[in-house]
């Protein structure tokens, strides 16, 4: 039984990885990360100190800040159409007439998509740290590097989960794209200043704003990243600054590292359940 299960998982992993390579997702995500990194290296290393970080440390911080906005979109694009497209083009009708369980398929696709998104990022961070050390002679901030990787991976998993859940539950591909965009925009817009704007316009209770901020995986990740680097009002914004003072940087990091992953896991479990229980075609 276990041999069959691993065979089924292995076959789908290989099949989907080949599909991802063909669709050039790996090249695209790696290229995008590398392009951003190159831009920040070029600009960042020439400028003066920002947020107390200099050189490669600041480049990493700035890069992560931009990635926090970009990673959700890349993850949603990579996962948001995978199920409904396979359902439409007849892949499922053929594939599930083979000895493959739905749970194996869902797990395999999730693992491949997550790996393809997160591994180039880890490689890029490692490369930047190595460059900073060898070329610019700067000490590597392993703690910051590790924290950045954990937070980015957690955020990626969140949006892999959201994307797969949408892909399972929304059969119409055009509608699915619309929902994916709404999720991304919601995550990106409900950051510090927009939340304060909401509070002022709709006279929302500050507690509501702090809860909204913490619930938004992008904001949770952002606060965790910045608080570990420089927990100042200018860097974090009023909501983040309040929370870091209230909760402390350790708790904020824990929140930023675990909450996005937990939210993504909840969406993933829900999507998996829908996928297993509902009609396949």
């Amino acid at each position: 039984m276990s041999i069959r299960l691993s065979k089924s998982l292995q076959a789908v992993v290989q099949f989907d990885f080949a599909e991802v390579m063909r669709s050039r997702w790996l090249v695209f995500s790696s290229g995008l990360y590398a392009l951003l990194a190159a831009l920040f290296v070029l600009v960042g290393l020439r400028q003066s100190t920002v947020l107390g970080f200099t050189g490669m440390g600041r480049v990493l911080l700035s890069l992560c800040h931009v990635l926090l906005l970009l990673l959700p979109l890349v993850a949603l694009a990579a996962c948001g159409q995978v199920i409904n497209r396979a359902r439409d083009d007849g892949t499922f009708e053929f594939l599930f007439s083979q000895p493959i369980t739905r749970s194996d398929y869902f797990l395999a696709v999730s693992l491949v998509r997550f790996a393809v998104l997160v591994l180039p990022l880890v490689a890029l961070f490692a490369l930047l740290a190595f460059l900073g050390w060898t070329i610019f002679g700067q000490e590597i901030s392993w703690v910051f590097l590790g924290r950045s990787v954990v937070i980015c991976a957690s955020l990626l998993w969140a949006f892999v989960g959201f994307g797969l859940a949408i892909s399972v539950s929304v059969r119409n591909q055009a509608k699915a794209i619309m929902y994916l965009l709404v999720i991304w925009v919601t995550g990106v817009v409900l950051l510090d200043f927009a939340l304060i704007g909401l509070m002022l316009v709709w006279r929302l209770n500050p507690q509501t704003i702090f809860i909204l901020a913490s619930l938004n995986p992008v904001e949770a990740a952002r606060m965790a990243l910045l608080s570990s680097a420089d927990p100042t009002l200018a860097a974090l914004g009023p909501v983040g600054f309040y929370l870091v003072n209230r909760l402390g940087t350790g708790v904020l990091f824990a929140l930023g590292a675990t909450w996005p992953a937990a939210a993504g896991s909840i969406a993933w479990i829900w999507g998996r359940r829908q996928f297993i229980q509902n009609d396949l075609v």
Binding site: E19, S23, D89, E93, F94, L95
Partner: peptide, 13 residues
């Protein structure tokens, strides 16, 4: 079980 579908899948594989 083996299955021959009416419309073979439009796979890029």
């Amino acid at each position: 079980i083996a299955y021959v579908p009416q419309n073979p899948p439009s796979l890029s594989a």
